[in-house]
Design a protein around this nucleic acid. Sequence first.
DNA 1: GTCTATATATGGATAGAC
DNA 2: GTCTATCCATATATAGAC
Lengths: 209, 209
Amino acid sequence: MEEIKTPDKREYILDVAERLFAEHGFEGVSIREISKAAAINIAMVSYYFGSKEKLYEEVVERKLIISNLLLSEIDKHEKYADKLFATVDVFINRLFENRQFQNIIFRELTIQHRSGMTDTILAQLHKNFSLLIEIIQKGVKNKEFKKVDIELTAMTVIAVIKTYTTSERMAYRILHLENAHSAFDVKYKNRLRKHLREILSNHLGIEEK
Amino acid sequence: MEEIKTPDKREYILDVAERLFAEHGFEGVSIREISKAAAINIAMVSYYFGSKEKLYEEVVERKLIISNLLLSEIDKHEKYADKLFATVDVFINRLFENRQFQNIIFRELTIQHRSGMTDTILAQLHKNFSLLIEIIQKGVKNKEFKKVDIELTAMTVIAVIKTYTTSERMAYRILHLENAHSAFDVKYKNRLRKHLREILSNHLGIEEK
DNA sequence: GTCTATATATGGATAGAC
DNA sequence: GTCTATCCATATATAGAC
């Protein structure tokens, strides 16, 4: 009963491709390498996806969805400070989990248009930023927060998490971590979480409980 | 008297190569494209630099020097708050000026070792971070600053500037700029500068003058 | 669906004339 | 120093057998 589950195989190829694209960039990997790593025949890439370009696009688009699911988690809080902290936690978790994917996204932003995909990516980033911006905006209007540069405050949150997750080796060196691979341990995730809460509390004038 | 100034030509090729590598990544440009853009013969790349790899390394290494020159500017301040702000200004200016180069550096960090260059880059980044870390450290010890997570505070500064300069189009969308190319105008540079000063003042407990 | 074989293009590098 | 011509490796993509 050795049935081949085609959708699983597709997903698996996409997983492998995502990792390799993240590690070496689009031009840095060949479909030969991808097929070898995914243990399939080279011709299968064309068969499943049409071309290397299409495969790449599918890798990006498949994960470029906002997890609206978690928004209910945020909405249940009453104070904007708590909504904000909950949102920050969502971002930390998401960026920690998808850091290899995020490297693809980020690289796509710095590389001169490979395709019209950049617009889709920018639209998605805009949505993510908007989550933070709206909360801060309302908190300020509500006098719960001090007046600040709202957009740059939102950018600060994303920037710190993104920079932290970008390079394990950089984090290791700069932050004097225990070992080269501990940057994404719970311990250091909490350190980052605590830092961001403090930065935001101080900046927005949120009182500690 | 049409004398060809060789060192200038070398520099010119490096300039062109830097721009193209920044725009498309190492594998994303061919030496054919570089030579065409620099109006030289393809064979000249090998002649001047030995190989594409060597050219790339030279592009990186030529700018990977700390500008110690500016440190005297920082040292002349008495208060650590002023030293810190002066340092932030140095970083803003440097990252604004070298943003295409910074994209190369950043990409190099996220890409799995093309060469041993990553170590050199990490060492340089470490030095840059240390500039900030030392000032914050001394300020805290001196009770001029509140106690904070020093390394992550330094990372926050670099992260915000880096993220801002990474994508003109992102900045344009998120920050609602006047036009697509104004992100690096003095006006917005000052907006970023002001934001960072406020973030740091609030976080470190620096009193406004 | 899966594979081999192949068409075709493009890449980096260099030999050798000038 | 500069250029043409060319070698050779590697890339994507696909035709066609199974």
